[in-house]
Design a protein around this nucleic acid. Sequence first.
DNA 1: ATGAAAGCGCTAACAA
DNA 2: TTGTTAGCGCTTTCAT
Lengths: 348, 348
Amino acid sequence: MDDALRAAVGPPTLEDVARVAGVSRATVSRVVNGTRNVDPRIQDTVRQAIATTGYALNRAARSLVTRRTGNIALVVSGAGADAESFSAGVFTDPFFGRVAAGVVKFLRTQGVHPVLMLAETDDARADVLAYVRHGNADGALIVSTHAEDPLPALFIDAGAHAVLFARPARPLPISYVDLAHHTGAALAADHLAGRGRRRIATITGPLDVPASQDRLTGFRDAMSRHGYPYIPIAEGDFRQDGGELAMERLLAEHPHLDGVFAANDLMAQGALLTLHNHGRRVPDDVAVVGFDDSSAAVASRPQLTTVRQPVELMAAEMARLLLARIENPEQPPRSTIFEPTLVVRQSA
Amino acid sequence: MDDALRAAVGPPTLEDVARVAGVSRATVSRVVNGTRNVDPRIQDTVRQAIATTGYALNRAARSLVTRRTGNIALVVSGAGADAESFSAGVFTDPFFGRVAAGVVKFLRTQGVHPVLMLAETDDARADVLAYVRHGNADGALIVSTHAEDPLPALFIDAGAHAVLFARPARPLPISYVDLAHHTGAALAADHLAGRGRRRIATITGPLDVPASQDRLTGFRDAMSRHGYPYIPIAEGDFRQDGGELAMERLLAEHPHLDGVFAANDLMAQGALLTLHNHGRRVPDDVAVVGFDDSSAAVASRPQLTTVRQPVELMAAEMARLLLARIENPEQPPRSTIFEPTLVVRQSA
DNA sequence: ATGAAAGCGCTAACAA
DNA sequence: TTGTTAGCGCTTTCAT
C-alpha cells in the first residue's frame, strides 16, 4: 500500500532504500559511496534493498552538496576567424573524432561524462567559461584549432580547471598533453634519408602553431645531421587543399625533388594528388611521408608512410590529468609528452 | 564587509541577488525564468543586481526541483560487433562530425547541452539507458551505425525519450529524422541518364540497412523509367575499401560500363581509385555519382558529383523533436523527412 | 505583484 | 559503527 503509493510518486530515493533495509539514509549513502566503516552484514542488507527498490543515485542532489557534477566540458575552441564554417569543419576533421573517442572511453571508466561544447566566438567562449565556473562541469578539456586561442588564458584567470591538447603558443601555467614533434619529424627525416632520397623538401603547417614549428625544426635538424643543411619548404594550412598548393609550389621551384615530408596526413594526401597530376610516381619518383597516422593515411593511394601520433591515448591522458587536478586542486600543472612512432606503408 | 565575506564563500546565489536588489528570492527566480507578473521596474532592478553580482544559475539545484537537467545524451550506438575498433572508426566518420555540429549548434540556442556517449556493447547500452532513465539527461539522440541496433527498443520499453537519426530497420513507435533516399537516388539516376550514360551500375550500402535499400530501389525505379530495367549491383559497406572492391567486381563483370552510382561518398571515393587503377578516366570514360556530400566529396579528385544530405539540418531537427517531446510527453512520435539535392561537381 | 516557506535527494558534520 | 540533523540553491504553492 505504502509501496504502491511511492511507486507512483517517482523513482526510489535513499529514503526508500533506507526504509526497506531498516537503516538510516546516512548508512545507505555510505554504502553507495563505498565508504568504509559499515558493518558487512548491513552492507549486504542495503545492497539487497537497493536491488529490490531499483534505486539509482540522483546526481543533481549529490551535486548540490558535493559541488561536483561528474561532468566535464569537452571544448573545441577556435580563434574565432570565420565562426560559421568553423563548426562544420572542425568536427569533420578526423583528428577531433579521435580525441573524442579517447576521451569518452577513458571517462566512462571513471563515471564521468563529457559535455560537448563549441567555442568559436567570444560569446561562446564566455558561455563555456561561465558554464564551468558556475559548477555545471568540473573542468574543461580544450582542443584549440588555432594558435592564438584566448580560451586557455580565460580559464587560468578564472581559476577554472582545464587541460589542453597541445602546448599553448605562449607559455601558460596550465596542464597539457603533447607529442614530441621534434622526434617525430626526425623519424620522417631518417626514413627518407635511409631510402636514399637526396632532394628533399617539406610542407609545413601554419607556422604560428607550435607543433608546426617543432616539426619543421625537428626535420631540419635531422636532415642537417644527414648532411643536408638546406631544405626547401612551403607553408600549408593542415588541410588537403593547402597540401596540394604547397606541393605545386615546391614542384615549380624544385622539379627534381625526390622526397617530401608533409607536416600532416591531410596535406600529404593533397601532395599525393598534385604529384600524380604532374606524372610523378609515388614512391618511385617521389617518396612522401605524412604525420598523424589519421584515417587519411589509409584512405589515400598509395597509403601513407607516416609518423603516428597516439591521439586516443593522448586524449585519455588529458582526461586523466584533468580528473587528477579536480581531485587535488593544489597540485601544480603537469604535462605529458608522448613519443611518436613511424608507420611504414607504401608512400615512402 | 558582508559582501566580502560572501565573495570568499562561493559563487553568488539567488539569495545574494535578492539581497542586493532588495526583493525576495522568489522574485529573482521569476525574473530569471522569464515568468510574467513581475513589475517592469523591479525586473530592471533585479537584472542590475544579477549583473553586479555576476550571478549564474546553479543547474543542479534547479534540476533537483524541476526534475529536468537541461542535458541530453548524444549517443553513438552500434550493433556491438567489434567493440574495440568501433569507437575509433565511428567518430572518425565525417558523417558523425556533421551530426555533432548540427546538434551542438541548435542545442545551445536552447540552453541545452549534449553529453557524448558511446553504446557499442550491451553493458554500455544499459549504462546509457540507466543514465537517462534516472534523470541524468532528459532524453537521448541516437545515431545507430547498424541496422539491428537494440538501443531504440530499450528506450521505448523504458518509456525514456529518444529520437533517432534514420528510420529503424523494423517499425518502432519512435520519432526520427530521415532523408527521402528514394528521391535522392532518382536525382542521381536522372543526372547519369541525362549525361547520356547507357551502361550504368550501382554500388549499394549494406542491404540490411533501410537507407541502402531505399537508395537502391529509388535508383532502380528511376532507371527503369529511363528505359533501363536491369542495373548491375555490387554490395559495399559504406566504407572506402568496400567501394574499391565493389568497383573491381563491377568492372570485372561489366568492363564497358560508363556510369556508376555509389550509395555514399566514401564508396564513391573508393570507386574512383579503382577506376583510376584500371585506366578509366572520370568522368570521360565513366561518370561517378556519390551520396551524402560529405567532406570526402570535395577531398577526392575529381571532386564528386553527389546527392546532398543536409545532415546538420537533420541533426538540428532531431534535437528539436526531442526537446518538443520532453516539453510535451503526451505528443505522439513525429518524424521529419528531408529532401536531398544534387550537387554537380566534376565526377559526373 | 510579491513574499514566506516547504522541500527536491543527497552528503557530511556531529552525536551517540 | 550508526543515526540525527542541517543545509546545498532552487522552484513553487500558498498567502498576502
